[in-house]
Structure formats: C-alpha cells, structure tokens
Design a protein around this nucleic acid. Sequence first.
RNA 1: GGUCUCUUGGCCGAGUGGCUAGGCAGCGGUCUGCAAAACCGCGUACGGCGGUUCGAAUCCGCCAGAGACCUCCA
Length: 493
Amino acid sequence: MEHQLVIYNTLTRKKEVFKPLVEGKVGLYVCGPTVYSDSHLGHARPFITFDLLYRYLIHLGYSVRYVRNITDVGHLENEADESGEDKISKKARIEQLEPMEVVQKYMNSFHENMKELNVLPPSIEPRASGHIIEQEEMVNSIMENGFAYEVNGSVYFDVERYNKKYNYGKLSGRNLDDIKTNTRKLEGQDEKRNPFDFALWKKATPGHIMRWPSKWSDGFPGWHLECSVMSTKYLGEIFDIHGGGMDLTFPHHECEIAQSTASIGKESVRYWMHNNMITINGQKMARSLGNFITLQELFSGSHEMLEKAYSPMTIRFFILQAHYRSTIDFSNEALQASEKGLERLMAAVNSLELITTSPETTVDVVGLKEKCYAALNDDLNSPIAIAHLFDGVRMINSLKTGSEKISATDLDDLKSFFKTMVFDILGLKDEEAAGSGDDEILKGAIELLLNIRLEAKQNKDWGTADKIRNELNALGIEIKDSKEGFEWKLSPS
RNA sequence: GGUCUCUUGGCCGAGUGGCUAGGCAGCGGUCUGCAAAACCGCGUACGGCGGUUCGAAUCCGCCAGAGACCUCCA
C-alpha cells in the first residue's frame, strides 16, 4: 500500500496517519439513525461521508467490518414532556401504531433512501432493541467498577467519580469544572447526584410502552449505552474508527468513551471522526429546528423551498463537493451547480468509450491519478479530488476531439482509473438513460429520426433537420451533433 | 454566560507564508448551416484594523459578523 491515508482525529485534534490495529483489517463504527421519522438532508451527510471512507478503505485493500447501528429504543424527549417517554413511543401514540411498527416503517424508508443515494449497506447493522441484554451487562460491569449508582430503579453514571480516575471531557475539549457551571438543570432529574450524570438504565413510567425487564426495574437503556455496547461487541474492546456527526461529540460520544472506559478499563476508539453539519440559511438543519427538508422531498421536489427536484446523485455529489469537516450550505443555486457539474462529469465518463488511440500520449494520466489519491489520502479531501477529476474531464474531452493524443495502454489506464474513482470510490452512478436506453424500441425510434435528420442535413434541408431536433428537445431528448453523426440522451427531468 | 469554529470573487466551495483549486453562472473567441456540446481566454477574491516577515488570504493581536456545542440532534 503505497498511499498513506491521513485522517483527522477529533481526540487529538490533529491529522494522523491511519494505521489499523490489525494489519489489513479495519473496524469502523458509525452512529446510525434514530428511526422515528423520515431522514432529511442533514442525515445524509454522515452516511455519505462514511460511505466514502468505507469505499476508499476497501479500495486501498483493507478488509473492513463496518458497523452502523439502528437506534430503535430510548433517546429521551426533553420537550414539555414530563413523562420522560422516548421519541419512539411518543410518536407511536400520535400515530396509533405499535412502537416497533414505527421503527419498521422509518427503518424501511431509511434503507430506501440509502439505496437511492448509493450508500453501501454496512457489514452489520445492529439494533439497540436487539442488544438489551448486552446493555444490561455493561451497566452491571460499570456498577461493579464503582462508576454507577442506582436510584429508584434507575442507574446513573457517576461522572465525578469517573473523572477522578479518568478524564471526562477529553474528546469534546471540556473539563468537568466547566461542565459543572454550565449544565442546565432539567426537570425530573433530581434523582441524579449531579446534573451532568447520565442515565445508563431508566425505569419506565407506567405509560412508557417500550420497556424491558432488568434487575433494577422494568425500563430501558440510557441514551448512550447502545453504541458502547454494539461497537465493542462486534469490533472488539479496542477498534479503529468511530464516526458520526459533530453534534454527537458531546455528550453522546463523550459518554460512550466514559462508559467503555469505566466498563473495560481502557478506551475503545483509536480514531474519532466527525462530519460537520449541513446548514440552511446559515443555520444548522435539524429536526428540532424544523428547518429541514427530507430526502424524499428533495428527490421529488415537493417542498416549498425547492425550485425543482434534485436527484439522489445530485445530492451525493453536492455533499462530496465539500470537505466533510466543513459546513455546507444548502441552496437551490448550489444544488443546481452540482447537478450541472455532475452531468458534465458523467458525460466525460461516457466519452471515454469514444476516444481513439494514437501511438503516442500527450496527456499526463499518472499525474492525474496521483493528485486524486493525494487528495483522498489527505483526510478524505473529496472536493480536491473532484477538482482534479474535472481536469480529467477536460483531458477526456480534448482526447475525444483529437486535440490531445493517448496510447492504447494509457487509455486503458485512464478508463479504469476514472471509472474506479467515479463509481467505486465516490460512489456515483449514471442516472441518465444515455444513448443506450433500456428501451430498445424507443432507442430505435429516436435513432431512426436522427438518421433521417442526418440525411436532411446532408441535403441542406435545415427546416426538416431543425424540426426534428427541436421537437425531440421538447420531448426531453438532448441532441449533440458530432463529426461522425450524432449523440443523444434523455435529459434529466 | 462558558468552550470552540468560521468569515474567500455573482453563487457553492478548496487551499499553501511567495508559485494565486474546481464547479455553476457571466463575458469574449474557436468550432458548427444554425444550435447544443466541447475547447481556448477573461474577471485577479480572500470581513475590518494593526503587527511579525524581504513577502501573508495563509502566523499573532484586537474589533466586527456568523455559526456549533453546552439539552434530543447526523
């Protein structure tokens, strides 16, 4: 492996050379969705970001076990909701559904969205509800080690005690003193010794539907426990990379570190990676802020803020055009720019097949490859890699028109590199029914018309030629004349 | 209030102490019967004020503005 991948580790706040714990193998854990409503644009970012990482690690030759959970229990509501019921059961009551029915519904739509975005499924997709026993076991071990206490059937993590031995706050860069002065006091939390303590096990209120038996009470596991449990269960006590959105750094990931450390006596995660947020009008897009646009709305264009529908690949490309640690601002203008750019990139990929070879090569394929790899190795800098790919687009177009030359060997190299980069690593796919549509009858009919047009052109019958072109255009078929004749494709809707 | 981050040309977005990504839009040109596409060229941007430096958008300070986390959150 000649390329050295460097990734930014939130824990050290530095870029570090990535070296897996076990040579050739990578354990990757990413916080998945809480399935209680449709996914929005903001949710797409981590899954696309870490899909890129997953794909790239595989490309580099690693054998990767990618674990991405489904949160289908817990996560307390904080809104005027004194019952402390969780999001899923709250929603269930509104919609008159079984909690697991809600879970199933939104899990299905999540999977559908991921498929549309060409996000590869993880190796394991564990559900919190399927690991209640393991979570109880971890609560036990944390208690045995003296870092948790029980009150009225609920178990809380003793942050102060933990902080005496370890360092609570190291990931998010805070210290307990700061936290002490800044933690808001919430209602119904007087059971805790300190407001910054967090629940490991919560006793269910009578109205709380999702509940499991335990030796402390009938209840449910705390907010952060599932990730500690499921990551170490499937990846080992120590594993390579844990990813998620930046907004999870505190308290979620901080608590995960504390739990794992308190339970097994050492830290589990070697590299923490966090993607930044998607903003809309400069503000974070979030379910709680109500300023979100769901993926389904994006794909169909059915949202008042959308000027049109944007295809899944447009969304994917849009996200990849910004570095994952930068915020990215949503706007119709930006999305349309991505759409056009992607179209150009894909047209170039298709043009690769139309290039004729020469005895000599006048372009620098090796240089292009190196630049792209250098970009990805530098903390997954996809925007830079894409910028270089656009240099490649110019290269391809020039080769196509013959103003540059390429040998057969170099062309093979360029083709395989370009397609690997675009399809395998960036995970893009061609959404347009290019000249080779599935429908043979349609294809035949269009080409018949275009051949008639070609004849008309040869006879300088511009009226007929333009009529055919204009009317096909109106039907959504784009025509490009070329020296050999024509190219056509269905335009994206 | 505490902790932290950001501020780049019309828009989106990279970036390094000097060699000034890329996409979209715009302008000019080449090609074309015309168009589309493509190709070539252009616009010389880095919030403000100071400082360090031979040289700073890139380092430091101050000011202004925006945002994130501190509470569920991708």
